[in-house]
Amino acid sequence: MRNSNESSGVADLIDRLRQQGVEAGQTQADALLEQTRLRAEQRLEDARHEAEGLLQQAREEADQTRRAGKEAVQLAVRDAILRLKSIVVEQFVDRVQRLVKRELENGDFLKQLILEIVGSSTLSAEQPAQLLLPEDVVGLEQLRANPEAVKEGTLSHFVAALTKEMLREGLEIGTLGDRSAGIRIQLRDEDVEIDLTDQAISELLLSHLVPRFRAMMEGIIQ
């Protein structure tokens, strides 16, 4: 009877130990599962934050790229407009210079200009002066040697006829010495030169016209 009781006690002990082991194992398993779940949730949260950060970074980079592209386009447009304005102004300047030169190369206009200068109070018998004409307009040596022999109707003949008396009274005829169109008057005693060449007249006109042309162009090309 005693052996039977002892056997029963041992069996109960084994059952209790087994049950405790199962419960301990279950507890550990539950704890491990909870830790795994928490780690998984944390990793998912970290991944979500990282994805949001990457998305935000991508958006910022895209915005920067768009802004940089927009600024580049605006800069290119501005440079193109500036180049266009510069080209238009250069063409305007060239046009004015060519018009002035063409007008001063016109014999009739040059005759009128010389007539205005010679007939003005600027020149007098008491004031030694030199009238400088374009080299290709007047035959200087022929005019000096024999003014009457110069062909009638030419600018040289006009100058000879107009200055015949003044040549005796101190007005000399010379050449400009360059390819300028127009005339220059040099008043020797006063060390003064009246420059009516195409360069001088163009510069004077352009100093007034170019600012106005630029202002007008600003309203057209913006």
Rank of each mutant, 00 (worst) to 15 (best):
A161E: 07
L38F: 01
L204V: 11
T154D: 00
Q56D: 10
R67C: 03
V138Q: 00
Q35I: 11
A51T: 11
G170L: 01
Q199H: 15
I183Y: 00
L82A: 15
E172T: 13
L167A: 06
A149F: 02
V89H: 03
Q42V: 12
H49Y: 02
A200K: 13
K70W: 13
A215T: 15
V10T: 10
L13G: 05
L132E: 08
L123N: 00
R43W: 00
D79G: 10
R16S: 04
R16W: 05
V138Y: 02
V88K: 14
D178L: 14
P128H: 05
E141C: 05
E45C: 10
R98D: 11
L17V: 08
K111W: 00
R184P: 05
S8V: 09
V93D: 13
K85A: 04
V159S: 02
L140Y: 01
V150A: 06
E172S: 11
L132V: 07
L99V: 14
I87E: 14
S124M: 06
H49E: 12
R83A: 13
A145L: 13
E34N: 07
V89W: 06
N3S: 13
E6H: 15
E41F: 05
L55G: 12
V210W: 07
E103A: 12
M217L: 15
L110V: 03
L131K: 07
E152W: 02
A58Y: 00
E165M: 08
L143A: 09
Q64G: 06
E71Q: 15
E71I: 11
E116K: 15
E41Y: 06
Q42E: 14
V93A: 10
L84A: 15
E61T: 12
G9H: 11
R212G: 13
R144G: 03
A40F: 09
G107P: 10
G69N: 09
E172D: 08
A62S: 12
S156I: 04
A40P: 03
T27V: 11
H157N: 05
R37V: 02
V210L: 08
A11D: 04
V210S: 09
V192P: 01
A68T: 09
V137G: 00
L140N: 02
G177M: 03
A129G: 04
R188D: 07
V159P: 02
E169A: 07
F158H: 04
K70T: 14
Q97E: 13
Q142I: 08
L54C: 03
L38V: 09
E148W: 01
I201M: 09
R144D: 03
A161N: 08
V10A: 08
G177C: 00
R83K: 14
L44E: 10
S121M: 00
I221D: 04
